[in-house]
Design a protein around this nucleic acid. Structure first.
Lengths: 342, 342
DNA sequence: TTAATTTGTGCAAACGATGTCGGGAACGTG
DNA sequence: CACGTTCCCGACATCGTTTGCACAAATTAA
């Protein structure tokens, strides 16, 4: 299976490459018979246009770039799944870049993606990213851009996110209804949009139930495997220690589960635990983990759809909006204290 | 931050593009002073060579293609992590393609990767792939190729795999030592190399302990979420039903855990369960899941290293070999029957 | 002094495709 | 008959870079 070019077809048919090119893309100024012969020949040789040459010419590369912090993360890998499905259906290829939560690498990724002439860019910001000038430059070059999950309010672009506020509100409200009053919130870097939204949902729920907000119960960080335990110890030493934990990521929820177990704190008797994730085995953990489900795949799908819409209807500016995908509260035994056993 | 070309540098310095090109790549036939000026100018303009143009010329694209069945799979996403880390260090970019377990898509992916002029290809076969002619063509075009995890014996290339035989042997031996004699083996498509190797390890262990191999205890398939239950029912209806389950994938192990629970079969009292995976929360499941750990990240790293070695020392043929990464048996409560309680 | 070599540089082709011209043939119109 | 149209199609430049070859100037050898 050799790889043939437009020249081969031209030579075979004794016509010029321009004619072949035009025939292939069905230009009206080519004789129907010639067109037929070119098509037939292309078919026979299994001709495929060279995407590299196309990109060089500056036309569409039919590839979209995806830049995200980490592939090895359930949320992101699911999101990619959604992105890829849509892209494939609409004839695009996906080039994936990992920023590894590094601002430097994110910038390098953007550069790379641009020089590889992607038709559009889908980005979830690294946790180090505070400045978004590198993305503004993308916009200035008129390359469509859609942010998902980790977005920045400084960029006037389409964004696709989970309903972080609603999800956090529901989780907190659920804990409050179960009688918890000292709800610790373990979350990630404070400057990320998702962090702020979730915190806002948490506070709104507290307010609704007349529970005072206590700064001491909020912990930010990139908790490594060995950092969760000490942080819990610290919290439990408070004058009035927490009776529930609401975590903002799957990694954190699992870390808590483990750390609490090691400290002989029983869930949900001693403390409740609820995550914010869509970990696929949450229901099989011990105890089964209550959680707020983020529809990762759907977020990816919607983001990809919006991006491709923008790419294809480039002339007419599409409305810029923030799409908020609903989250769902799933209650399992980690927050279901039958009775307050004292 | 405009994007400058070699022409801009040439114009700026009043020299020809060829000179700039040669100066940039440090050709010996360029005056040192000219070189210096070119370098300085390139630095100042933040010049970056256009990878598209380079690829078109047929020279190195400094990109490697990775084709695998599914990104949203813990094993593969970890492997990508390893691949990306190595590639990044050695100055390569990674373009990821998903075959979605489809032979058609795998072929399309190979085509795409080739036409995007990747410098090398890293592949884990789709479960539908029986014929490997499309990969033979890659080799014929002299593009370096390394297979990992799901490999084919029909291809004479470097392969990187987990020690499937050893892992399966260890898992089976462990169950036998625990007194189990009717060990069901739930596995994936029979024609995959990993399936065969694991089955061989299983059989070898049985043989060592003088336990007869029973075809009825082996089940192959792409078990969807609703298929595991019925299959277990079927097994439990055998004259002598299984007293242990050894599954060949993480998805299967989790499926079993759930299905067994629903059927009120207790683990490990009624039946033992051991997986073959490196699911990161295996120890937090209920019960904690015994498992054979596959070092996914390491497999990815080694595969990427081998590939890049081949790309860079292309002239001298490197030895073709199969690298087998050791697996590790981890015993947890899902196989630890304190006593045979009757 | 003349010829040969070395050194540094530019010209032009090439990679694969597209798009802008412009031209030849066939036809219609005045 | 001369001219304007229309219909098809080919020559050529272009995208950014590399590379073989030519060529001038400077240096060395004879």
């Amino acid at each position: 299976m050799e790889t043939y070019t437009i020249k081969d077809i031209a030579r075979e048919l004794g016509i010029s490459t321009s004619t072949v090119s035009r025939a292939l893309r069905g230009s009206y100024e080519i004789n129907a018979e010639t067109k037929r012969r070119v098509m037939e020949c292309a078919e026979r040789l299994n001709y495929r246009p060279n995407p590299i040459a196309l990109s060089l010419k500056g036309s569409a590369s039919r590839a979209i770039g995806v830049i995200l912090p980490q592939i090895a993360n359930y949320f992101f890998s699911q999101a990619i799944n959604g992105i890829e499905a849509i892209a494939y259906n609409r004839g695009y290829h996906v080039i994936i870049f990992q920023s590894q939560e590094s601002y430097e690498r994110e910038m390098a990724n953007v550069q790379q993606a641009m020089s590889r002439k992607v038709d559009g860019l889908l980005i979830s910001l690294s946790s180090e990213t505070a400045d978004v000038e590198h993305l503004q430059e993308v916009l200035d070059k008129n390359v469509p851009l859609v942010l998902f999950d980790r977005v920045s309010s400084e960029l006037n672009v389409t964004k696709v996110v989970a309903d972080n506020f609603g999800g956090a509100f529901a989780a907190t409200e659920h804990l409050l209804k179960e009688g918890r009053r000292r709800i610790a919130h373990l979350t990630i870097q404070p400057w990320l949009s998702i962090t702020q939204e979730r915190l806002a949902g948490y506070r709104a729920a507290l307010e609704k139930y007349g529970v005072e907000f206590d700064e001491n119960l909020i912990r930010y960080g990139t908790f490594g495997p060995d950092e969760v335990g000490p942080m819990i110890d610290e919290l439990m030493r408070l004058d009035t220690p927490p009776d529930a934990f609401f975590t903002a990521s799957d990694r954190l929820a699992v870390g808590c589960l483990q750390a609490l177990g090691q400290r002989d704190l029983h869930i949900p008797e001693d403390v409740s635990l609820i995550g914010f994730t869509n970990l696929n085995v949450a229901h099989l953990l011990n105890p089964a983990l209550s959680t707020v489900v983020q529809p990762a795949q759907e977020i990816g799908q919607v983001a990809a759809e919006r991006l491709i819409d923008q790419i294809e209807r480039k002339h007419r500016a599409l409305p810029i909006e923030t799409v908020r995908i609903p989250t769902e509260l799933i209650v399992r035994s980690s927050t279901r204290a039958e009775v307050v056993k004292l």
